[in-house]
Amino acid sequence: MNKEFKTIKTEIRLPYELAYGATWTRFFEGMSNQILYGSKCEKCNRVLVPARTFCPRCFIDTKEWVEVPQQGTLTAWSYVNYRYFGQPTTPPFIGALIRLDGTDVDFVHLLGGFDLSDFEKVRKIVKNGMRVEAVWANERKAHIMDIRYFKPLA
């Protein structure tokens, strides 16, 4: 039974305006000045980045702001080579978990600064545990893409 049945094409588009709140407003203002802010929990002593209003484990307000180093170590990466509707970043790209120096959680961003077109070449460059450094955009908008990507350190 290969009968074709009718379908309808439809679409939902909704506008949103999301509030950053005080903590993340300050974090993103920091980014526009090439500063990465984390927050230190006084109970578990972890440095969380991006900065948080509260420590999700201890459930207490974090009061101490720390400027986080812009170099770190690659925990894991993902070479993304497929597309979907509304994808904010154009593939191929490499999503990465990066442990910035002096922090206790992984920061999510892109790897870049080298040719991404050929996966086999990428695989020779990118290694778990390698050192990486933030590369800032010339024009910054208090946005996560104020960092263009993290580049491998030779």
Partner: peptide
Amino acid sequence: WYQRYFIAGAPG
């Protein structure tokens, strides 16, 4: 704000 740009669906 921080992660949607880099985490591409489930496979990523």
